[in-house]
Design a protein around this nucleic acid. Structure first.
Length: 920
RNA sequence: GGGCUCAUAGCUCAGUGGUAGAGUGCCUCCUUUGCAAGGAGGAUGCCCGGGGUUCGAAUCCCCGUGAGUCCA
C-alpha cells in the first residue's frame, strides 16, 4: 500500500522553506513557512480576526467576489459564468449545487467533454441544506453561499480525453493560493496548509485545508485517484484507489468567509448582509441600547472564539458565555434569539432568491420540496420575530441584489406559496385548538401519537401545537427524539429491484447504424440480419443498420415488417441495448439474410407529429406561463401524448386556451425543424442547461432539435416543418403532483379525431335533452334543478301519504297490546316511505310495524311511541330473523329486513305475539 | 417516487352500520334602531364519483377524482 504522504511533499514547499509539522493538539500534519505549535484551526486555535480584520482592506461580498475572480483572471484563468443552483438540470445524481466543481461533473471531470476554458475561475452560488439548523445560530454557517473555484483539467499525453496535457498541478495551485492571500495583504508566514485527504464520488486525492487566523478560507483538492479494487492507495472510506491518467485541480474559496475575514465582524452575517440585517431589525422593531449592543457584540465575539460547529454547540456554549460576561443566561438568550432569527432570515431569503431565480418551482418532490421547506421555515422565523412584511418583498430584495430578471415570477411563486402555507397553518390551528380543548377538558396530555400525526399528515410543527395547547390549558408531551419517530413512521422496507442486465449475445454485436436520423421521412431500407436471438416470446433481430426507431425519450418504438426472399415478419417492438438495436418479431427472418425493412408509416407519422407537437406545446406553455416552465416528463403516443411541466399553480382554462392558440400559431408559421450535432459544451454554452428538458444524454456530441426558438437535446424523430403537425388540441390538464401540471394533447389527425369524440359526446347529450348542442349546458342545469325540486316534492308527498295511511289505510291490522294500539301494515314501498309511515303512526301514539316486500328483499320498520315499554330493536331482531336477515336500531325506532320476501306476511302476522312477548 | 390524512349545508366542522346534524352565514318576522345587538321562525345536502359487503352504507372494503402533508 502506498501512502499519500509523498504527494504532499511539493517542490514549492521545499523551495520556499516550508516545513512539514505536526499539530501538538490534534495531531494533524500541516505545512507552514514558520514553526508552529498547532495547525491553526479551531479548536486547536481561536479565531484571531474578530474586531481585528485579517486583510488590508474591508470588502463587501460583491467586491470580494470580484477581487477573487479578477485576481485569477489576471493569472491566466478564464472567468466562466456560474451554473444554476439546481444541479439536477444537468446531472441526475444530485439536487442542488454544493460546490463549484459540480459545474463540470460528470462529463468534464471524467474527460468525456472539454471544459469551457482551461484553467478557469468561477464563483458558483451553492446551497447546502444540511446546514439549515445551524444558520444564524453558530455565527459562521450559511445555507446559501458562493464558492469561488479555480480549476485546471490535466490529462496524460496520448490519452483520448477531451483535453490533453498539463495545465497546472499541485505546486502551481498552492502558489496561486498563496499569492491571492498575499494580494489581500496577508503575511505568508501566517498561513497553514493542513493535509486532509479527500474522497468523494468514486474519486480521491490529496488535499489541503488552508487556514488563516483560525478560519478555513480555502480547500485545495487534487483529484488524481479513482476507485479500483486492486488500487494501491487505501483511503479513509476503506476503499482502495489507483492513479488516473487525468488530474483535476478542484479548489473552493468561501467568498463569504473571505468577506468576513476582511471585516472582522463578530458573525459572518454582519459582514455579508449588513443592509438586510439593518432592514430586518427595523421591521422587527429591534432597537438595542448601547449597553445591550455592546453585550451582544462581546457575546458574539466570545462565541467566535469557541469551537462551534453545530447549533447544539452554541446552546451548550451559552452558559459559559453568560458566565464570562456576568449576565444571566436568560438575559443573553432574550437578546440573542431575535438576532439569530434575523440572521437566518437574511440567509434564507438569499437562498430562496437563488432557488426561484434559477426557476425551481415549489413542489412536494425534489428541489421543489427543498424550496418549500426553506420558505416555510423562513415564514415561521419572520412570524416569530414579528416582522410584518410579505415574504415576497424579502425574497425580492435579494433577487434584485443578485440581479435576477424574472423577479415578477419569483414574487408570484413566493406569494402563492406563502398563501398556501398560511392556509395550512389556519387549517392546522383549528385542528389543534379543537384537540387541545378536548384534552384540556379531559385533563389528559396530548399524546405523542397525535403530535406525530399532526406533523406527518398535516404539516404542523410540534412547537406550534405546544403554543396553542398552552393557550388552551392542555399539556403536551413532546419526546426528544420526535423527528426519529417521524422517520420511523416512514421506514417501510422498499424492495429495491436492482435491474441487472443479464449477459447477452447481443452485447457482442457491433452497434447498429441508425438510419432514422438521416431522412426522417423515409420508411423503407435494406439491411443484413446479423443475428437472431431466441426469446421467451418471439425473436430479437439485430441488423447491420435500421430505420426502425427504438423506444426511447418518451417516444414509442416503430412497428413494421422485415421482408426477405422467404417471406415477411412483423416487427412489434424495437429496443436499443448498448448501441445495438433489437427488433422483436414473432418469427425468425433467418440469420445472414438480406431483408427490406418497411416501417408502419402511418404509425410513425403520427408519432413524429406528436413528438414535434410536444416541443411546441412546451414552448407555448413557457411563453404563456413563464420562463420557469420546463419539461418534467413526457410520453408520446399515436392518439394522444402527454407533457408534464413544472408550474407553481393550477393551469386555468383561459391559460390552456392561450397555450393552444400559441401552439397552433407555431404550427401555422410552418417553420422548418432543424437538427444538429454540436459538442456538449458548445451546446450548453449557447443554450444553457434548459436543453436537457427531456433528460441528459450521454456522449460528447449531442443532438439538438430546433423548433422555432425552442432548442432541446432530443433523440426522437420529428416532422420536417411545424406545419406538418397539422393541428394541436389540448384535451386536458391535470396535476400529477404538486408543482407539476400535465397537458394531454393530440396532434394532426389525432387532434381531429379527439375533437370529433368530444363532439359526439355533446351531440349525444343534446339528443337526449332534445335541444341544440349549444343549449346543452342550460338544459342540463334546468333539468338538474328540476330534478332536485322533484326530490323534495316526493319527500313531501311521501310524508303526506304516510300521514294518510296512519289514519287507517288498507292492509292495516290494528291490535291492542296491553292498552296501546299497535298497527301492523304491509305497504310495499321504499325505505323512506316505510320510515315516514312508521313516524306518522308513532306521532298518533301507536306502535308501528310496517313491512315492504319489493326489490328482492323484505324491509321492516318498527316504531314505538314514548312511554310504551317495548324495545323496537328487540322486536325487529325477532321479525327480521323470520325473513332470513337481521336488523337493529335504538329502542324507539328500528329497522331491518332479509332476503326472504315470501316469509314477510307470516312475519307480520306474528308481530302482535312478538310485541306482547316484549312487554312481559 | 413512497407513506399518511382528509372530502357532509355558502363557510367551519360534528356524525364508528339503523329517521343527516351543530355553529356561522342566508331569508322572514319581532324587539331595538348606536356600531359584527337580542329574540322567534324558515330554507338550505347526488354526504366527491364508481363498484363491493350488508336486510340496511355518509359510516366498512376496493378503484378512481380532488385537496393537504411528511419523507427520499
Amino acid at each position: 500500500m502506498s501512502e499519500l504522504e509523498s504527494e504532499y511533499r511539493l517542490d514549492y514547499f521545499a523551495e520556499n522553506g516550508f516545513e512539514r509539522q505536526t499539530c501538538s493538539s490534534c495531531g494533524a500534519r500541516f505545512w507552514s513557512r514558520t514553526e508552529r505549535e498547532t495547525c491553526g484551526e479551531p479548536p486547536c486555535e481561536d479565531y484571531g480576526f474578530i474586531d481585528d480584520p485579517g486583510f488590508e482592506n474591508a470588502y463587501s461580498l460583491v467586491e470580494m467576489r470580484e477581487e477573487f475572480l479578477s485576481f485569477f483572471e489576471e493569472h491566466d484563468h478564464e472567468r466562466v459564468p456560474p451554473a444554476p443552483v439546481a444541479a439536477n438540470r444537468w446531472r441526475d445524481d444530485v439536487l442542488l449545487t454544493q460546490a463549484s466543481i459540480y459545474d463540470f461533473q460528470p462529463h468534464v471531470t471524467s474527460g468525456q467533454s472539454p471544459p469551457p476554458a482551461n484553467p478557469l475561475v468561477v464563483s458558483q452560488p451553492c446551497i447546502r441544506m444540511q446546514d439549515i439548523d445551524n444558520v444564524g445560530k453558530t455565527g459562521r454557517h450559511t445555507m446559501a453561499f458562493e464558492m469561488g473555484g479555480h480549476h485546471a483539467f490535466n490529462a496524460d499525453e496520448g490519452t483520448d480525453y477531451a483535453y490533453e496535457g498539463e495545465v497546472y498541478w499541485k505546486d502551481q495551485c498552492v502558489e496561486y493560493c498563496e499569492q491571492f492571500f498575499a494580494s489581500m495583504g496577508v503575511p505568508r508566514e501566517e498561513i497553514t496548509f493542513i493535509e486532509d485527504p479527500w474522497v468523494g464520488g468514486g474519486n480521491a486525492g490529496p488535499a489541503f485545508e488552508v487556514i488563516y487566523k483560525g478560519l478555513e478560507l480555502a480547500t485545495l483538492v487534487f483529484m488524481m485517484l479513482e476507485q479500483d479494487p486492486d488500487g494501491e492507495y487505501e483511503m479513509k472510506d476503506g476503499n482502495t484507489y489507483s492513479e488516473m491518467d487525468r488530474r483535476v485541480v478542484d479548489t473552493g474559496y468561501g467568498i463569504e468567509r473571505w468577506t468576513w475575514m476582511s471585516q472582522g465582524t463578530p458573525t459572518v452575517y454582519e459582514a455579508i448582509y449588513p443592509e438586510s440585517i439593518e432592514y430586518l431589525k427595523g421591521e422587527a422593531g429591534i432597537d438595542l441600547t448601547e449597553e445591550e449592543a455592546d453585550l451582544v457584540h462581546r457575546a458574539s465575539k466570545l462565541a467566535g472564539h469557541m469551537d462551534i460547529d453545530e447549533a447544539e454547540d452554541m446552546e451548550a456554549a451559552r452558559d459559559t458565555i453568560a458566565d464570562r460576561l456576568d449576565v444571566p443566561v436568560s438575559r443573553l438568550e432574550e437578546l440573542m434569539e431575535p438576532l439569530e432569527a434575523i440572521y437566518a432570515i437574511a440567509d434564507h431569503a438569499r437562498c430562496l432568491a437563488y432557488m426561484f431565480g434559477d426557476e425551481i418551482v415549489p413542489s412536494n418532490v425534489g428541489t421543489g420540496y427543498l424550496a418549500r421547506m426553506v420558505l416555510r421555515r423562513t415564514k415561521r422565523l419572520v412570524d416569530d420575530v414579528g416582522i410584518d412584511v410579505p415574504l415576497e418583498d424579502l425574497v425580492d430584495r435579494e433577487a434584485d441584489r443578485l440581479g435576477y430578471e424574472n423577479r415578477e415570477t419569483i414574487r408570484d411563486i413566493v406569494r402563492t406559496e406563502e398563501r398556501k402555507y398560511q392556509e395550512t397553518l389556519e387549517r392546522g390551528g383549528r385542528k389543534v385548538r379543537q384537540l387541545a380543548d378536548e384534552h384540556a377538558q379531559a385533563g389528559t396530555p396530548i399524546p405523542t401519537e397525535k403530535l406525530l400525526e399532526l406533523y406527518d399528515s398535516h404539516g404542523i410543527q410540534p412547537s406550534m401545537v405546544a403554543d396553542i395547547a398552552e393557550e388552551r390549558g392542555a399539556e403536551v408531551n413532546e419526546p426528544d427524539d420526535f423527528y426519529s419517530l417521524v422517520a420511523a413512521r416512514h421506514d417501510s422496507e422498499e424492495a429495491l429491484e436492482a435491474e441487472h442486465e443479464e449477459a447477452d449475445r447481443a452485447d457482442e454485436l457491433p452497434d447498429t447504424e441508425q438510419l432514422y436520423y438521416e431522412d426522417q421521412d423515409r420508411m423503407e431500407f435494406e439491411a443484413v440480419v446479423l443475428d437472431v436471438l431466441e426469446r421467451e416470446e418471439g425473436y430479437d433481430v439485430a441488423l447491420d443498420q435500421t430505420m426502425f426507431y427504438p423506444k426511447g425519450g418518451g417516444q414509442p418504438a416503430d412497428h413494421g415488417t422485415l421482408v426477405s426472399e422467404d417471406g415477411s415478419v412483423e416487427v412489434t417492438d424495437v429496443q436499443m441495448r448498448d448501441g445495438v438495436i433489437l427488433h422483436r418479431t414473432e418469427e425468425s427472418p433467418g440469420k445472414g439474410e438480406f431483408v427490406t425493412g418497411q416501417i408502419d408509416a402511418e404509425r410513425r407519422r403520427r408519432l413524429m407529429a406528436h413528438h414535434t407537437a410536444t416541443h411546441i406545446v412546451g414552448a407555448a406553455a413557457r411563453r404563456v406561463l413563464g420562463e420557469h416552465v420546463r419539461q418534467a416528463g413526457a410520453q408520446k403516443g399515436v392518439d394522444s401524448s402527454r407533457l408534464d411541466v413544472n408550474h407553481y399553480d393550477r393551469v386555468s382554462r383561459e391559460e390552456v386556451k392561450e397555450i393552444e392558440r400559441v401552439a397552433n400559431e407555431m404550427v401555422t408559421d410552418n417553420t422548418p425543424i432543424r437538427q444538429e450535432w454540436p459538442g456538449r459544451h458548445e451546446a450548453e454554452a449557447e443554450h444553457g442547461f434548459d436543453l436537457y428538458q427531456g433528460g441528459i444524454p450521454p456522449g460528447e456530441n449531442i443532438r439538438l432539435i430546433h423548433v422555432g426558438d425552442d432548442v432541446q437535446a432530443c433523440g426522437g424523430t420529428h416532422v420536417s416543418r411545424t406545419g406538418d403537425v397539422g393541428a394541436i388540441k389540448i384535451l386536458n390538464t391535470e396535476p400529477v403532483q404538486d408543482g407539476v401540471e400535465r397537458f394531454v394533447f393530440a396532434a394532426g389527425e389525432a387532434a381531429v379525431e379527439a375533437t370529433q369524440r368530444t363532439e359526439d359526446a355533446l351531440y349525444e347529450a343534446a339528443e337526449t335533452f332534445d335541444v341544440n348542442p349549444q343549449e346543452v349546458p342550460d338544459a342540463a342545469e334546468r333539468f338538474f334543478i328540476e330534478w332536485k325540486e322533484r326530490g323534495k316534492t316526493i319527500e313531501d308527498l311521501t310524508e303526506q301519504l304516510a300521514a294518510a295511511r296512519a289514519g287507517g289505510g288498507e292492509n292495516a291490522e290494528e291490535v291492542d297490546i296491553d292498552g296501546t294500539t299497535a298497527v301492523i301494515q304491509r305497504i310495499d314501498a321504499d325505505a323512506d316511505e316505510l320510515q315516514a309511515t312508521a313516524n306518522a303512526l308513532v306521532d298518533d301514539g301507536k306502535v308501528a310495524v310496517v313491512g315492504s316486500g319489493i326489490d328482492e328483499s323484505a324491509q321492516i320498520v318498527v316504531g314505538v311511541p314514548e312511554g310504551v315499554d317495548v324495545d323496537a330493536g328487540e322486536v325487529i331482531g325477532v321479525l327480521a330473523r323470520k325473513v332470513g336477515g337481521g336488523g337493529g336500531g335504538p329502542p324507539d325506532f328500528a329497522q331491518g329486513g332479509g332476503p326472504d320476501v315470501g316469509a314477510l306476511d307470516e312475519a307480520l302476522a306474528e308481530a302482535p305475539d312478538v310485541l306482547r312477548e316484549q312487554l312481559e
